[in-house]
């Protein structure tokens, strides 16, 4: 058996290197793998790949909600061919997209722009998450600074009454074993 099972010092009070060693090694492996994943050689996207990635962000003008990449409508096929031409001409992704915005309007892009009222769709979720996290932080702070709730004299009177079996003390806690007031549903 490993020493960790029999000798508590192996992982609880051993040398810092012994305790943290596996994690340091793990960190090194993760950093190395991620840098390879980000900076490693990869196949350059072909024209076809660029056409499909652009056409996934352009809405089919005659369907509801489908992208040009998904749709088989003639209009979409036409736009796919047009995007392919523009990619071959050397236009950038943004140039191609702004051409379609100029021609069909903002609704042609499946990603709303980050300007004007449309920016709300990007900002609101982040704001909501920030508010929720701030709320949690405040609650935790309060929990850690405030003392735990103590029983008030009123509470004590109720408990004593209940323990005596004196039902007039409280109708809610008629059953002393029923601390949550569950009644039959326990």
């Amino acid at each position: 058996m490993s020493s960790g099972r029999t000798n508590s010092s192996a992982f609880s009070s051993g040398s810092p290197l012994r305790r943290l060693g596996p994690w340091l090694l793990l960190g090194v492996v993760i950093v190395a793998t991620l840098s390879l994943a980000v900076f490693g050689t990869r196949d350059a996207p072909t024209t076809q790949d660029r056409v499909s990635s652009i056409s996934r962000t352009v809405k089919c003008p005659v369907c509801s909600g489908e992208s040009v990449a998904e749709s088989n409508a003639p209009a979409s096929q036409e736009i796919r061919r047009d995007i392919a031409l523009r990619v071959q001409e050397g236009q950038t992704d943004d140039e191609i997209r702004s051409y379609y915005v100029a021609r069909y309007g903002e609704a042609i892009l499946l990603t709303p722009s980050a300007s004007g009222i449309n920016a709300l769709v990007w900002i609101l979720p982040v704001a909501a998450l920030a508010v929720a996290l701030a709320g949690l932080a405040i609650v935790f702070r309060r929990w850690s600074t405030e003392p735990a709730e103590t029983a008030s004299p009123e509470d004590r009177r109720l408990v004593e009454a209940a323990l005596r079996g004196d039902e007039t003390g409280s109708s809610e806690l008629a059953d002393p074993t029923d601390g949550h007031g569950e009644g039959d549903s326990r």
């Binding site: 809405k59 990603t111 769709v121 979720p125």
Partner: peptide, 23 residues
């Protein structure tokens, strides 16, 4: 938000926008 946003925008200023897969 993403599902109803186009409706909200259209109701407010009559613009039509799309919120789709990339978003």
């Amino acid at each position: 938000l993403g599902t109803v946003f186009p409706l909200v925008v259209e109701a407010i200023n009559n613009d039509r926008i799309s919120v789709g897969v990339p978003y």
